[in-house]
Simulated assay, not measured.
Amino acid sequence: MLRQMSTEVKDFSLINGDSMGTLENIQKEINKCKCQHEALLKEHEIIKDGIENNKTFAKKFQQRTEDKKNSLEVDDKKRTERLEKEQEKLSTSQKEQEKLRTEIMRMKEELESVEKKNDFLRQKTEVSTAVPEKKVVFKGKTAEGAHCQSFDANPRIVYPMEGGTALITFEDEGVAQKVLSLKEHKVQLGECTINVQAQPIQFLVPTYIEMDTQICPHRILVSNLPNKVPEDKLLDKLQIHFAKKKHGGGDVDDVDMLHDSGTVVITFTENNVAKGLTDQLEHKVEFMKNQTHKVKVTPFLNGEISRLQNRNSMCLRTVKLTGIPDIMELENLQDHLEIHFQKATNGGGEVESIIYNPIDHTTLALFTEDSPEDSQSI
């Protein structure tokens, strides 16, 4: 078609030479139209690609929407299942709670009944003791280990001594007070002189004790034991005897000898065994072959201090000496201190006992009751 138009243009130019300019303009318009046509084709391709992309995006979006919908349905189903389970648990918990309330009410009623029954026993086992004031004194004895720290009717006080100190007990209380009043003392040790300080010994001792005791449900106290049976064999025989059901016993957890009282504590794994054994006061135990011995079985009491009052107490005949350097052997240094404080010219007097604890050493001094008999005999 373009060729035909070109021929026609040539023919037309032959017919009318003045129209040459018009044909050139037409050619420009045609070229312009071609460019616009190509641009439109490109835009068409772009639009076509955009449509395809939109279709793809729409398809993917639809797929994601479908997946999300399925996921929400699954989550909703799981949530519903969990809710149902929680509701079941809540219902079960409410039922159990109601059972517990009923059980608590029943136990409260039983506890009130038991407390009423135990009031009488509690009154009988309550101990209220006023501790009399007693003087204590150091008599040269020491104690090793924490097991020595105890308090009973006869005072036994364990006093930790610092290094470089000494304890000296005078026969006369007045001498001790005079040494304390002088405070500082110059002691001759061979060719040198040392300054020592005299200090009082004070303790915090109980003056009043209230103790609540109760019967232990799984222990018994066995006394009236044979004297000639070795301890190991004695404990074994007791354990074997009281472990047997036919003797009223049960599973034994521990057997312990109390050497200070010569009794044995037997501990059972179950609580209901001890009472049955203590109801029968005497038990025949075979310690030797074909030979039995009657032992006494009594309840074991647990005690707890409910009230305790203390006071400061001063040791009137014992003086603490401090600031003693470690410049010679222990025995020599101790002898020099004793000789110095025995002399009346140094403010001293007769010494009943003395102990020196060197620097960097630890010693536990044992204070016992300063009885009137001891004072009269000095």
Rank of each mutant, 00 (worst) to 15 (best):
H218A: 13
V252A: 02
P200I: 04
V222L: 07
V205I: 06
R219G: 03
F203V: 06
D232N: 11
K186L: 11
G276E: 13
V264H: 01
S261C: 02
K284F: 09
S181L: 10
N224D: 15
F242Q: 01
L221S: 01
V255G: 00
Q291N: 12
K244T: 00
V222C: 09
L238S: 02
H247M: 10
G303R: 14
K245F: 13
L204V: 11
T278V: 14
M257G: 06
K246F: 09
V273Q: 06
I266W: 05
N272P: 02
L189Q: 02
G190I: 04
Q199C: 13
Q197W: 11
F242W: 01
F268E: 01
G276V: 10
I201E: 05
P299Y: 03
V252C: 05
I201N: 08
D236C: 02
Q239A: 12
L225K: 03
T298V: 13
Q188A: 10
T267V: 07
D212G: 05
E191R: 10
T263D: 11
K244M: 08
N302M: 15
D251I: 15
I240L: 09
G249T: 01
V205P: 03
V187F: 01
G276D: 14
V285H: 00
D254N: 14
G190S: 04
N195G: 09
H293S: 07
K244W: 06
T263L: 00
M288K: 14
Q188T: 04
C192H: 04
G250T: 07
V179W: 03
Q214E: 15
E210N: 14
K228I: 12
L301V: 06
L225N: 05
L238E: 05
I240P: 00
P200K: 07
N227C: 10
F287S: 08
T269G: 08
E282Y: 14
H218D: 15
N271M: 11
E210L: 04
L258C: 10
T263Q: 11
L281Q: 13
Q280K: 15
H283K: 07
D256E: 14
T269M: 12
K284L: 11
V187P: 04
K289R: 13
A243I: 01
K228P: 02
D260T: 12
C192P: 00
G276M: 12
H185A: 03
H247D: 13
F287W: 01
T213Y: 08
N272H: 14
L182S: 14
P230I: 09
